[in-house]
Simulated scan of single mutants.
Amino acid sequence: MNICEAVKLAMKNQKTTQGQMAERIGVKGQSVIAQRLRMDNISVNTVLEMLDAIGYEMVIQEKRPGRRSEGQFVVTLEKRK
């Protein structure tokens, strides 16, 4: 899963629309969020801003095999399909 897919899934879990996200982070319109979520090279600061707005955080840890707890997402360098 790439980072934008993880943000989308977190938004879905929090029942947050793109319009609500835009309002929370103070950008003008849902289209700004849609554009960010289509980016292949989104900045870490932008991701952190969006995650913070929906009550999520980013954790960096060593890679490990196996399943993650519910609500955790593994982000990789996977290319968009």
Rank of each mutant, 00 (worst) to 15 (best):
L37H: 05
E49A: 09
K63M: 09
T17E: 05
E78H: 11
T16H: 06
C4G: 07
T76K: 05
K79F: 01
K15D: 14
I25W: 06
V44D: 13
S31A: 15
E5G: 05
Y56D: 07
E70V: 07
L51C: 10
M11N: 07
G71D: 11
V75T: 03
G26D: 04
Y56F: 13
K15R: 15
I25H: 03
I33H: 09
N2S: 06
T17K: 08
F73P: 00
V32M: 12
S43C: 00
R68G: 02
M11Q: 09
E57D: 09
K81C: 12
T17N: 03
R80W: 08
A22K: 08
K28Y: 06
A10M: 07
K81D: 15
M39N: 14
K8M: 12
I42A: 01
M11A: 11
V47Q: 01
M1L: 04
L51M: 08
V59R: 15
E70T: 09
P65H: 13
L37G: 03
E78M: 12
V75K: 01
R68W: 04
R64S: 13
A22E: 07
E49F: 01
E5Q: 14
E78T: 10
E70W: 06
C4I: 09
N13T: 08
V32N: 12
K15Q: 14
